[in-house]
């Protein structure tokens, strides 16, 4: 006890206002700002000079997606609509809320539905589910609008062909993410939307058991493509939307597609920079 008191006294003395010294708040700020921890995490002071502004972007792995300087048109909302950025932001929202939902949700026929009901009724801040679902819808819309804007400004033209292609794949992945997530609440809306949606896969030419040409894949009267071996089956893990489909969609929704999408996003953003930043008139 006495030691603590002594130590406090020493601190008091140390910070007691002395003449010719700056006031305490500034000294505390300087102390913290000068500490090794602070410097190692932030590396630079407040971006008051252009040098530091450049450093902020350059030395931060998250911000260095951006160039240090950017065309004035590129920051104009009128021009960009910020739809790509919003899509990415929504992806992050979906990742975080989705991760949290996974703590309560079990992808089995017994529990899936009741877990969602529990989320709605019992889980604290179960509004997470609403955020996740509406965020997903919003993401589909923003990604479409992003594509729309990119088309309208002709930004798919050389040298951005490759990145446009990556973008198209990302658009498809976004739809698939939303589609796979649609099943997980395991309610009537979910099961029938996925049933209707995946029924089309039955008609895949050659690989769907009700698709043109699937009869050709047969050995005599032994059909090779049937409800248990066609494209839809691979998707659903069953002949109809059931336990297998729920699990497969869950895995694809939570791990498979996000992994691919995140990788492609990294490529997409990197290509934006490599292709000369956000597009503008040449």
């Amino acid at each position: 006890m006495p030691n603590v008191r002594e130590w406090l006294n020493s601190l008091k003395q140390k910070f007691a206002p002395k003449e010719g010294q700056p006031p305490v708040p500034k000294r505390v700020r300087d102390y913290i700002g000068g500490s090794q921890i602070w410097r190692s995490f932030l590396r630079h002071g407040l971006p008051k000079t252009d040098r530091i502004r450049a450093l902020v972007v350059l030395s931060n792995v998250l911000l260095h997606l951006h160039p240090v300087k950017i065309r004035r048109s590129g920051v104009k909302l009128r021009y960009t609509w910020c739809m790509g950025g919003l899509t990415f932001f929504l992806f992050l929202v979906e990742t975080v809320t989705g991760l949290l939902l996974m703590f309560y949700y079990r992808p089995t026929l017994e529990y899936a539905y009741v877990d969602i009901v529990e989320l709605r009724e019992q889980v604290p801040l179960g509004v997470m589910r609403e955020l996740h679902r509406w965020g997903a819808h919003a993401m589909v819309i923003t990604v479409w609008l992003h594509m729309f804007r990119v088309f309208m400004t002709g930004s798919y033209k050389p040298p951005r062909e490759f990145n446009w292609n990556v973008g198209v794949v990302l658009l498809v992945l976004t739809l698939l993410l939303s589609f796979t997530g649609y099943l997980l609440p395991w309610d009537q809306l979910a099961i029938w939307a996925i049933t209707v949606g995946t029924n089309m896969a039955r008609a895949t030419p050659l690989l769907g058991h009700e698709g043109p040409g699937s009869q050709l894949l047969a050995l005599g009267d032994v059909k090779l493509i049937h409800a248990g071996s066609d494209a839809r089956f691979a998707l659903l893990g069953g002949r109809f939307v059931g336990a297998g489909a729920l699990l497969r969609f869950y895995v694809l929704h939570c791990v498979g597609i996000p992994l691919v999408a995140a990788t492609l996003m990294a490529i997409h953003f990197w290509r934006v920079r490599k292709d000369g930043g956000i597009s503008g008139p040449l």
Partner: peptide
């Protein structure tokens, strides 16, 4: 041969 194709490794998921 039909038997062998139907039950061939990797192909035996079809029928």
């Amino acid at each position: 041969p039909v038997f062998y194709v139907r039950n061939a490794p990797m192909l035996d998921f079809m029928n």
